[in-house]
Amino acid sequence: MSLLEVKELTKSYNGILAVDHVSFTLEERTATALIGPNGSGKTTTISMIAGLLKESEGSIHREFNSGIGFLPQYPQFFPWLSALEFTEMAAQISGVDAKKVRQQSIRTLEFVGLGSAVNKKTGTFSGGMRQRLGLAQAIVHQPKLLLLDEPVSALDPTGRREIMDLLKSLQQDATILYSTHILNDAEEMTDQLLFLKEGKLVEQGSLSEVKSRYAEPLIRLRFDTEQAAALFESRKFWPMQRDRNVIALPISDEGPSMQQVMAVLAKEESGIAGIDKQSASLEEIFLKVAGKK
């Protein structure tokens, strides 16, 4: 069942389109990664869904009443409040039952790993702690939809790993829409990919769908020796590139199929050590799409 339906969502600032007729749906309990270069409209899109910005055109249709959890890229907290005071305030404003506020806040802070800092003032928090508190305030009222703008970009590798694991565990209860420019993260947790470029949605679909669309799969042939590889190259069966003892064969329209390659290899007795097929990484797709005019 779809939880959120975005239709022709558009935001213009003085005639310049920051988000340009973007449409997509979020299915319940799925994770959607919003990727794209800087300034492609990721934050603007998320802000509109969060209700912070009014859309210029289009509609956002929500299939739920309970709240949204929102984590901005650089969450700012009132420095004179402690982590617990802030989380409680967030829970209360979002309508959490008064009797449950304290318990739910503490449990959430423990969940994000701030159990030992509940009474510390947020003004003394490090970048990693702020990101954790930001996540805590976004999930403390147990929202159905989580909107996360670059949730892990500001973190070191350890912190990123931990937060990604937290997010994955949240997927059981919530629908997640998050933006990122770190494509490894997107590859790790995504049921749907949305690729924004200059405000337009240029790619959309599951990770494997997008990959297959951009796939220019390669066959990699690994030879025992460099000489063997050079010999194979000199036969010029198809266009190919050699790097020492490895030869890459692009399988495209004019290239060979896997069967043809296998047939030739069987005939040639050429000292082959290994064969593998490789599809393009998300990063390659990203660069391709981002660079395409």
């Binding site: 912070l52 929102f70 901005p72």
Partner: peptide
């Protein structure tokens, strides 16, 4: 930006 986390509620 401290208001953002209030306004998003």
């Amino acid at each position: 930006g401290t208001a953002t986390l209030l306004y998003a509620r």
